[in-house]
Each structure stands twice: as structure tokens, then as C-alpha cells.
Design a protein around this nucleic acid. Structure first.
Lengths: 340, 340
DNA sequence: ACGATTCGTGTTAGCGATAACAGTACGGGG
DNA sequence: CCCCGTACTGTTATCGCTAACACGAATCGT
């Protein structure tokens, strides 16, 4: 009998452990554990007594001990490129919410650069803290490489990556989004549509180019200009483009670049949308208040994040899917586009 | 002698543990542990042998086991309101970078609402996964309340919270930022400066109002309008303000609202900056490409995050500081303001 | 040259939980 | 009246690691 029966309210010093609760409730540690993990296996009265003891002592299970013995941590990791950007931030946010609903915690590893190595390092860092699974948000060519040589025992889900990977993934259908944006401009009577793209080694950028090309398939596509997603690059490329009087419609691969481009056009004396129509991509919260309010393609990051989590969950419970889900973007027409 | 000496390359099934490495290297488990945690205590040749074994087996220490025995997890938590917003996202990012440099991992708990309860819950959730410390980014009145009744044994650092708390904190000096913004407008010859503020129960919002008032102390301050930080609220309040021909200068409490407000002014026929000057707050990456490029107050979120981490680190190693650090914001003059 | 350190390593004993098995008490069927 | 399944609860053995102490050999001072 090592049960300290009464116990006394003396030990305010160290956090209570299972044994303490057991002592106070007059049961064994195992029973307390059961009350916490499988309450139906314990007689209601005993359960009540234990619960009261838990309350009184303010007992909290020790996470490390539990995960040592169960082999699961209840934590998942997210490896993401620059979580300061609207897309990754929104996706991360959605993942976190979904995770919380299922009692998972989220660990993050932000990447400053996107290389095969940095991705591998990020995953590794998380793995060392024994996350149960990892979601990678890194829509870059090199990310795809980094995901190739992953430990096979770790459940991983890819967000927005290439389709050539044999792991579960979710992605927005950028081909479709870009197609719709371009189609919209064509429908307004524009002869052709110019494109200011993101970096081509970004998966998203690449697909948007493809979608744009596809919409232009029966006419000549002007060579795309390439930006780096920043408003500033939009401005620089915009200055160049504004000198060409033949451009009347531009599809820009994201909203910040569109903002910069519109500014350049205005400074170059070209009015938007009277002289040239512009479509952006992302629908950042401010897009509706740009000048003019921006026609753009909305991505549903919340859905993206939720689906990613769902897929990971499936993977973690053992399902061996290689499912690939796709989220449709949506064209939001505002005032930066007009009939030719 | 339970040492499996040779061992054989048979066990590819389960992850290697200390004992396996020890066996292969012909030493005790303890020595392996030492090599990993205090290499200088082991003779170089032994160390090399152990390291080789670690390599060969691809050994990775078990996180749960280690933190069970050491009582530390190497993980810290960040509780933050809506990490989708520029400010929190940037701060979080900086914290993560600083943490990584010190081999800490970051767990996040995003809050959808900011109430005393949600904050407490966030902290609690993190605590259950035994984080070593927590940083709270929740510049809201209620957050301050939520932080009052925290477990005293958990190191916590507050970012941007009220100054009435007895816990370490870092914050941008918004009073000063708002003061400078307003002063700038006054210096340009404006009679007075109107203010579109954030919600008053946000600490930041409150301080910016104070700073604005302070700059206006020797003249009559018009009643401030109140927005909710969104571009949309800026637009709505802007419509109202643009009807009043006496307003020639507005200090807006953040950039998105400034964007909306400028749009409203333009639609109301008031030119910026010719008819009315506008100053924003935050210096979001796009601000330089607004139309007109926005004069605004830049907050250094990177420094903020780094300092927060530093403070938490101090706290975690036992220092019992209640230090409160302050980060100075900086006025960035662009083209949305002009001489009266 | 001898006890006192220092150095390098091994042994033992948990950390706090749960899995798996082992009782014990009770009620019902044969 | 005995046997056995059901329903609870307790015991024991780990999980993988490190703190603390123990021990032999090498090094040191005087």
C-alpha cells in the first residue's frame, strides 16, 4: 500500500501526477488513466470521484510521458515558405483551425528560401520533435525535389505542389483560374491578352502561364513578362509594358503585382480600365479597394487548408491514399476590366 | 552483458534507439547520450566511433523520452489573433526565425476571437503539449485580462499588450508613431488633422488615438472616426468624411483602411494629396504602390518578434524579469501628403 | 612514491504515462 | 450448487532517455 490515502494539501510545489490523483481518489493510477482515456470503462461513481480529484489537484497529463508510451504526439508540422505572404498565411491559418477541431496542435517551420535542402531540413526539424505528420506548403519546383527523398514512414501531404509526386496533395487549379481570367478578357473583345507571370519555377506561376496560353490557343500569345510576385516587380514590368500602345489587356499572376502594374500604367498615361484592362490573381482582402477595384481570381485558401488537413488525417490513421484533390478558383469581376 | 555486440543489419524494421547505437559502437547507452549532449566529456576516439554508429543506424533521439526526463521540450508556443493579418503574421515569422536559431520549435494557436476566455484557452492548449514558454500576440484589452490569471509557473511574454501587466513585454511605441504622423501633417501646414482609428479596445488603436491627440494638444481635435482595420471600413468612413470640405488631412490607423479611405475620397471628388493629405500606419509591402504611394508609419515587426523571443528566452532560463521593451516606429514619407 | 584529483565510462534508478494481463466480485445458466 | 462470462479495478512491465552516483585508470602535486 503506497497509497497516500489522504495526501493532504501540502504539495503545492510540484505539478500533480497520476499517482497523486489516484491517491486522493483512493484508486490506482491505472483507473485514473482510464477515466481520462476511456471513461465508459469505469463505474460512474468511481469516475466522479476521480474527476473530483483531478479538479482539486488541477491535474494535467504529462504530454511527454503519454507520447513516449503511445508513440503518438498529437502534433503535426507545417513546412511553409514565407508565412508572411497572403496565400501561405491563409492556408496555414485554415490548417490550424482544422487541426484544433481534431485536437491536434500545429508546429511551424517557415522557410526563408525554397531549395531542395531547406525543405528537407524543415521536415527534418519537425520530425525530430516527433510530429505525427507534416503538411508542406511550398509551391516551388525545388520543393517537389525536396519531397522526393522523404522518410517513407512519415505521413506527408503536399499543398500546391507538382502533380508528379506520389504523395497525397491538394492544389488550386491554377490552369483553370488563369484560363477563366484570360477568357474573361477575350470575351470583352480584346484582341489578345498579355501576361505578367510569377517566377516560372513556381508551380503556381507555371500553371497560370499554361492556363493563359491555353485560352489564347487559337491566336498568337505575346511573350509573357516575368515578375517575382512583389508589387515592385509589377511596377517595373508595368513601366515597360505601358510603352507598348498595342496592349489593351493584361492578366497579372497576383494582386500585388497588378497593383504595381496599374500604378505604372497610370503614370504612363494609360487609364485602367478605359485604355487597358487588368485582371489580378488571389483576391487579397484589399483588392476590392484598389483603384480601380480589381477584377481578380479568388482562391479559397480556407478550403485548401481544410482539405490538406483532412488528407493528412487519413494518412495518419493508416490509409494509404495518394489522392490528389483540386480546389476550383473563382473569377471576381470588378472594375479594372472593361469592353474593348 | 546484454550488449548485442555485432547486432547485425537485420533490424531495419523499427527505428534505432540509444541501445542499438551503443551496441554497434561497443559502448554503453550513457556514453552515446553523452556524445550527443556533451561531446567534450567523451574521448575523441570513442566519440568518433559512436558518431559513426549513429550515422549508420540513422539514429534520431526520441523527443518524448528526452523531454520526459529533462522536463524541457524545446518547444515554445505563440498565441496570436488572426495570423492572416500583416502584423501578427510578420511578428510570428520573426519569432519563428529567432526560435530556430536557438533550436526551439514554435507551436501556434490562432485565435478567431479575442476574449479573455479564448486567450486563456489558447495558452492552455499549448501548455498541455508542454511548451517551455509562450508568447502572446493579442493587442486587445481583453487579452490583458486573459493574461492576468495565468499559471505562474509558465514563462509568458506579451507582445503589444497593455503596460499594466506584470509580465515581460515588447511593444511598438504607437503613441510616438501616431504623434509623428500627425506632427508631419501639421508641419505641412494643415490646420488640424482628422483621425480614422482602429477599434478602441485594441491597445494599438487606443495608443494611436492618444498619440494623435497629443500632437494636437494645443488645438481642437475633431472627434475621431472608428473603423475595424479593414479596407472596407476605411471606405465607409471615408465616404462620410469626404463630405466635409473642412478636412484637409487625415491620419488613418492602418494602411488597408487608408486604402479604402483614399478610394472613397477619390470617388467623392477629393484629390489626394492635392485636396487632402493622408497618412497610414504599418507600411505594408504594397503601400509604396498605392495610388498615390502612401505616406505611412513603418513598424519593425522583425525586431518586435526577435525581442519577444529574447525576453522569453531570458524568462525560460530563470531570469525573473518584468522588463518591458519598446520598439520605435518610423515615418515613411511618400506621396499621399503635401503642403497645405 | 603515495594519496588526491581528474578523466572516461558504466550502472542504477527513475521521469509519468499506458498496454497487457491478472485478479476479484457479481449474476445467470445448467 | 458449481462454473463461467462480464464488469471493474489493480499489477507489472515497458516506452527511450538522462541524472546521479560509482568505479577503475591515468595524472598530479609535493
Amino acid at each position: 500500500m503506497t497509497t497516500t490515502s489522504g495526501g493532504g494539501p501540502a504539495e503545492r510545489t510540484k505539478a500533480a501526477v497520476l499517482e497523486d490523483v489516484a491517491g486522493l481518489a483512493g484508486v490506482s493510477a491505472m483507473t485514473v488513466s482510464r477515466v481520462l482515456n476511456a471513461p465508459e470503462k469505469v463505474r460512474p461513481e468511481t469516475r466522479a470521484r476521480v474527476l473530483a480529484a483531478v479538479q482539486e489537484l488541477g491535474y494535467r497529463p504529462n504530454f511527454a510521458a503519454r507520447s513516449l508510451v503511445t508513440g503518438r504526439s498529437g502534433v503535426l508540422g507545417v513546412v511553409s515558405f514565407d508565412t508572411t505572404l497572403y496565400g501561405p498565411a491563409s492556408t496555414l491559418y485554415a490548417i490550424e483551425r482544422a487541426a484544433r477541431e481534431h485536437d491536434y496542435l500545429v508546429n511551424i517551420a517557415s522557410l526563408a528560401t525554397m531549395t531542395r535542402r531547406s525543405i528537407a531540413e524543415g521536415v527534418d526539424r519537425l520530425r525530430q520533435q516527433s510530429v505525427d505528420g507534416v503538411i508542406v506548403i511550398a509551391p516551388h519546383e525545388s520543393a517537389v525535389e525536396g519531397l522526393r527523398d522523404l522518410p517513407p514512414d512519415l505521413p506527408v501531404v503536399d499543398v500546391g505542389g507538382g502533380e508528379r509526386l506520389a504523395i497525397p496533395a491538394v492544389a488550386v487549379d491554377h490552369h483553370s483560374g488563369a484560363f477563366r481570367a484570360t477568357r474573361h478578357l477575350l470575351d470583352l473583345g480584346h484582341e489578345t491578352v498579355h501576361h505578367l507571370s510569377g517566377p516560372v519555377n513556381w508551380i503556381d506561376g507555371y500553371h497560370r502561364i499554361q492556363g493563359w496560353r491555353h485560352a489564347l490557343r487559337d491566336r498568337e500569345a505575346p511573350p509573357p513578362l516575368v515578375g517575382d510576385w512583389s508589387a515592385n516587380s509589377g511596377y517595373e514590368q508595368g513601366k515597360r509594358l505601358s510603352r507598348d500602345p498595342s496592349v489593351t489587356a493584361v492578366f497579372v499572376a497576383n494582386d500585388p503585382m497588378a497593383l504595381g502594374l496599374i500604378r505604372a500604367f497610370r503614370e504612363g498615361g494609360r487609364r485602367v480600365p478605359e485604355d487597358v484592362s487588368v485582371v489580378g490573381y488571389d483576391d487579397v482582402p484589399e483588392a476590392a479597394h484598389f483603384w480601380p477595384p480589381l477584377t481578380t481570381v479568388r482562391q479559397n485558401f480556407a478550403t485548401l487548408g481544410r482539405q490538406a488537413f483532412q488528407l493528412l488525417l487519413d494518412r495518419m490513421v493508416g490509409l494509404d491514399t495518394t489522392e490528389r484533390r483540386t480546389v476550383e478558383p473563382e473569377l471576381v469581376v470588378r472594375e479594372s476590366t472593361s469592353r474593348r
